[in-house]
Amino acid sequence: MTQPQAILFSSQPATVQPAVLAADLTRIFGSPPSVVHALNHLNLSVPAGKFICVVGPSGSGKTTLLNLVAGLDRPTGGTVMIDQADLAIFDDDHLARLRRTKIGYVQQAARLANRETARRNVMLPLLLGGADEESARRRADEALARVGLTDLADRKPPELSGGQVQLLAVARAIVIAPSILLLDEPTSNLDLDSSLQMALLIDEIRSQAGLTVLCATHDARLMELADSIAWLKDGSLERFADRRSVNIRSDSVSTR
């Protein structure tokens, strides 16, 4: 197995165990002659409790990487390890259990049950995990309070604004008390104020719970909060740098 490039780039001591480790990760879609290499021998290590932003142009493999880390998809080659456990040995039911207990995932297009209330949407992962209705409701209300949606708990997603829908998706991701939070462009569809609110919320959640965060984004405000930034290009890790060594502007990111 090749040495993950991100470990080489990272300033973390060798003793820090990665919460997420992608080694030689490859994902190919389609079959010859129309083959798409979404990820191409990608290596990335995310130390526990750290906030890593993944940046790169559209099609660079950010969403594919998050889907593989969440166990929603299987790699064509290489491995994904979560807390030292190789996801390849997990069957689909184990992966589902992992998503219910350890990984909170906010997808770019927040997939919500539009016929259910906001509260019920947040309760869903708990109910799928076998929690009773009463405790699921209590925990859902706590998560909604944390993102500031208590007053809108009885509304359905179509009755909420874009920003509120994203906050609801975050509430649903954190209700299971995950140790890893995956965010796929959480501010991409939000206005300036909502983006700022979302960035502050993510920072607050992360610092309170000591979460490991892997966030695909183009948003400079989120990059400012990160510990490190990983650049993807054509499915490979182009560069991995400490955020303090990076000059972040709203329209571009460059190395100092």
């Binding site: 969440a70 929603l72 997939r111 049950a113 869903l124 799928l128 649903r172």
Partner: peptide
């Protein structure tokens, strides 16, 4: 399909 995708992404197993 979208509804099943949602349930699976939230941790529903194939058996469920």
């Amino acid at each position: 399909r979208t509804r099943f995708a949602l349930a699976k992404s939230l941790g529903a197993t194939g058996g469920t």
